[in-house]
Design a protein around this nucleic acid. Structure first.
Lengths: 219, 219
DNA sequence: ACAAAAGTGTTGCTGTTACACCCATGG
DNA sequence: CCATGGGTGTAACAGCAACACTTTTGT
């Protein structure tokens, strides 16, 4: 390859959502070679008249028809062998969304949500990228860095559901009573009055975040 | 400008050091137009056969003749107007060094260390970049994220000196006795036995970090 | 001896952990 | 009525904040 100061860039978008106590990521199945049938991150090449942030928004719109509401820039990956043919530099962006807004139809078999701890076969270096980004992200979410926890739970949730989510992020179990106290005791969450009966046992109350108390608060 | 998928990239290196209780950054004075006489970050254009990390190392070597010992990737800046002539995308890297290893000669007037809170006139968008990166960095250093505090104080220091550094990072004063207890009480620092007499008052003891206890520890 | 700066101890507060019991629902 | 899971209270502990006194130097 001829040495040159021109480079090819792409924006990679990592769309995360909390769902059933798990952190999930949105992936697309590749329909052409290379890596046909493998899953990949949504991405777009960057032209020289668009910023990386704008490019991330373009990807998001093409996936969801919505506007990005929160966005965090991640690392840039520049290894020479990221792509077999060309050297492509990938800058990652991260967004946390309400999964219910991007729910998929039954017949969508080329796009899906995956538990970040049970990823499918991924193309290019996307598995390494996801693992790298996810590892740091988990820590940031549970401390509500940049209101990430708030963005993960924009609508109603039960405390056991969020506790399960926390346990997955931290990789350890938490005492249910202390967890309850941490959120309900400090009025970080508000009881909506609605009960959720799912199967046996006492139904949990539906809560929502007290955004006034949570905004900007590290926990 | 013609729309194209080829982009020009540069690596920007932010070299920080703790000195006299302040966080300082290494800058170069620009000798040609544009921004002649303004100060700028050390940088290098990226060719298509080098990774961004390698490029950061190349810059560091050209500045110090040393190998990078720690490196953290920062944001990538892609605004269209970063440079008047071309669209140049800048990826930042951060390193924390022992300032004594890069001490400058008296006649070096084209390179210097600056207190991050008293920056000189900077070229391009470098002031905005430094302020953006520094703001997050300060928080990370004082919690020893990625052993950053350890890298800021690789050799001996007095506790009052480090306390002054902490106060500058946090933007508030700290109780001297609690500060002492936090480090000496948990055996995070080791008394070297050497005393430093600088002017009036009782001389402070020289400490060094107990790397065994500090490595990987968030404080 | 006096001023200036460094080192040390005690106390109370606050947040976190550990743990036992009661309550609401489905079968 | 019993199994399952959600909600509540309390006591011990650790980490942090507030605060006063002693020690070592220079002048």
């Amino acid at each position: 390859m001829e040495k040159s100061y021109y480079n090819v860039l792409e924006t990679l978008l990592l769309i995360y959502a909390a769902d059933e106590g798990k952190l999930k990521i949105y992936l697309k199945k590749k329909v052409d070679e290379p890596y046909k049938g493998y899953w990949t991150l949504p991405s777009a090449p960057l032209d020289n008249q668009t910023t990386l942030e704008e490019n991330a928004n373009i990807i998001y719109k093409s996936v969801t028809n919505l506007e990005l509401t929160n966005i965090y820039e991640g690392k840039t990956f520049s290894n020479l062998d990221r792509d077999q043919n060309n050297r492509i530099i990938g800058t990652t962006f991260i967004t946390l969304v309400d999964k219910t807004l991007i729910d998929l139809k039954k017949d969508d078999d080329d796009k899906s949500w995956f538990d970040v701890d049970e990823l499918p076969k991924l193309g290019f270096d996307h598995e390494a990228i996801i693992n790298d980004i996810t590892k740091e992200l988990k820590q940031k979410i549970v401390t509500n860095y940049d209101d990430m926890l708030l963005n993960c739970f924009p609508s109603d949730f039960t405390l056991p559901e969020m506790q399960s989510f926390y346990e997955n992020m931290l990789g350890k179990t938490i005492d249910r009573r202390n967890f309850h106290k941490k959120f309900a005791g400090q009025e970080l969450v508000i009881d909506t009055g609605v009960k959720t009966s799912k199967g046996t046992g006492r139904p949990g109350a539906l809560y929502r975040f007290n955004t006034f108390k949570m905004k900007g608060k590290r926990i």
